[in-house]
Each structure stands twice: as C-alpha cells, then as structure tokens.
Simulated assay, not measured.
Amino acid sequence: MGKSYGEEFILRPGAKLHLDRIDPSYHGKHKSHETAAPAIAESLAQMKRLQELLYADAKQSLLIVLQGLDASGKDGVIRHLFSGMDPQGTWVYGFKQPSAEEGAHDFLWRVHQHAPGNGQVVIYNRSHYEDVLVVRVHKSVPRKVWSKRYELINDFENMLTAHGTRILKFYLHISPEEQLERFKRRLDDPARQWKISESDYAERLLWPKYMDAYKEAIERTSTKRAPWFVIPANHKWFRDLAISQIIADTMSEMDLKTPSPRVDLSAIRRKYHAAANEQQGG
C-alpha cells in the first residue's frame, strides 16, 4: 500500500521546503477527474459523516487554513469540499486587508475571534499568515516586526490545539503559467470577470518574493500539532482529491463517537407513554 496524501505532502517539523522541486502538475496514479471522482466522493461522504459526530460530541474542533497565490484555488476548495457539510457546524472566514479597527489591534486579534468552538469546523480563506507574507513582500511592516510573528503564530496555534482544536494548513501550489491561464479564463468568462482585480497582474511580478516568503513561513510554522501540507494544485480535481483525503483521515484520527444521551431515557419513555395513554383516554 502506498503513502497516503497526508504522508506525501506534509512538511515535517524542521524540514526544508524546496518549492522549485515540487511539480504543481503532479497527479499521482490518477489521470483525470473521472478516475479520481469515486475517491473524492468517498472522502466527502466520510467528512460529512464525521462532521456530524464532531458537532454532536462538541468536545473537539477543526480549523482548516487555506493559503496560496491569486487563482490558486482557495475558493474552489471551499465550494467543492465543504458544501455537503452541515451549515450549523461549519463556518468560512476570509481575511483581506485589515480594517481600521483590526489594524488597531495585534495581528492575531481578528483571527482569534473566528477560531472554532467545540463541535465546529472553521475554514480560513487566507489567514494570519498574510501577516508574514503580504506585509513582507510589500515591506508594509518592518522586518524586525514580521520576523517575530512566526513564534507568535506557533504559540497561538499551540494554544488552540491545547483546547482541542485540530489544525490543518494547506498551501495550494500552482505554476506561474497555470495562474496566467486561469486569469485568462476569468477575462473570457463574463460570469467570472467580477473576480478580476487590478492587482492580479502586478502581483505576478513579485512571484519570486512570494515564494521566498512562503518558504520561510511554512518551514518555521509547520509543527507536529499544526502541520503544513504543500498540495500540487495545477489540476483542480487532484487538489480536491488530496485535500479531502487528508481532512477525512485527520477527522478519523480524532476518534469521534456518538455522544451518550444527556437525559434519562427511561424517564422520558415513561413520560411519553403516560402522555400517550392520557391522550387516548381523553
């Protein structure tokens, strides 16, 4: 039996990340969405079943962090992999440029407010990692400030895991060529032109700087409790296959069980039968 995708794409604590050696078009043994679809469906069914147990048991939680450059597929992951989960226990939060209020607090303040509570699954579409990525590339924060944030991030995530939160962090790895092709499809598709921003093409010029920023951020914050997974994402279907399997496997490891009844079932049954008999007698 081969490696699971979790074993294949995890960056072990202390390991070096060589993004230039990871093929963003990798697709494993599968050749197309058609051959991968049954495995994706199986993982999604497992995620749905386990999320119901997570919500019912309400003793643990799951935080999923999605990071990647523009058009890497963060929205697609959310749309394809989480639409089948119960909305009562699933939340998605996107983090863009901080508001005035958010900027007046420490950089983790706005993120911590949306950390999952017991029984919840929370997905971050971008996250606190923007504060060691974008601010570094654009030099909007001094090095002496953002360079100290790696340790603060690790402390923050350790605190969450100590409270019972499992954390999975995914970097969606695409090539510059694939990004440009996705931009073109947006330009040509009226239904998706709203996604286009003036900064899309300008940010492409900073690609090497973003690669350096991601490399250091992932290396310094991939821990045993909150690991990073670098997912080849040129093929959207393979991206979905790998991420869904990793999530399903992780939720299986959480040993989720149907909780015991919180009431005396015998007493409830007696009251039900008494009420039923009274209604029949009336």
Rank of each mutant, 00 (worst) to 15 (best):
S260M: 11
Y201Q: 07
S222V: 09
L168W: 10
M211Q: 13
H80E: 09
Q245N: 05
V230W: 05
W194G: 01
N277W: 00
D255E: 15
V263P: 00
E42L: 06
N125G: 12
D131I: 04
H138L: 15
D189A: 12
Q280F: 14
I78V: 03
Q120V: 02
K195P: 04
Y272P: 07
A242Q: 04
T90D: 00
R204V: 12
G89D: 10
H105G: 07
P87Q: 09
P13E: 14
D86E: 11
G2V: 15
K224W: 15
A275N: 06
Y26T: 09
M254G: 01
Q88H: 09
H105F: 01
E101S: 02
K224Q: 15
L69H: 10
S83M: 15
K169Y: 02
G73C: 13
Q120H: 03
Y129W: 05
D212G: 05
H273D: 03
G103V: 12
M254F: 06
E216N: 03
E8N: 03
N154H: 09
V141C: 00
L206Q: 14
S140Q: 15
I268G: 04
L54K: 01
S199M: 12
K31Y: 02
T35V: 07
E101G: 07
Q193Y: 05
E42Q: 05
I123E: 01
K215M: 02
F9P: 06
E102L: 12
V122F: 05
I231T: 06
Q60K: 13
R186V: 10
G6W: 09
S244M: 04
A56E: 15
H105I: 02
G164P: 04
R149K: 07
R149L: 02
R270N: 07
R49H: 08
S147Y: 08
S72P: 13
E216R: 07
D155Y: 00
L69Y: 10
S260E: 14
I10G: 04
T90Q: 05
E219F: 03
R21A: 03
F107E: 11
V134M: 06
D200H: 06
A276R: 10
G94T: 15
F9H: 10
S197F: 13
R49L: 12
D57A: 15
Y55T: 13
L205F: 15
V121F: 03
W228C: 04
G164M: 01
I78P: 06
D23F: 02
I167N: 00
P142L: 14
R12S: 11
I167K: 04
L241I: 13
S140V: 14
K215L: 06
E198P: 03
F229M: 02
G68E: 09
L53I: 04
E8G: 07
D240N: 15
H27N: 04
D188Q: 12
K74V: 15
Q97K: 12
A104W: 05
L172G: 01
R110W: 05
L44N: 07
Q97Y: 13
Q120A: 12
L19I: 07
V132S: 06
V77K: 01
V92N: 08
A276P: 01
V132R: 08
E101P: 08
R192T: 05
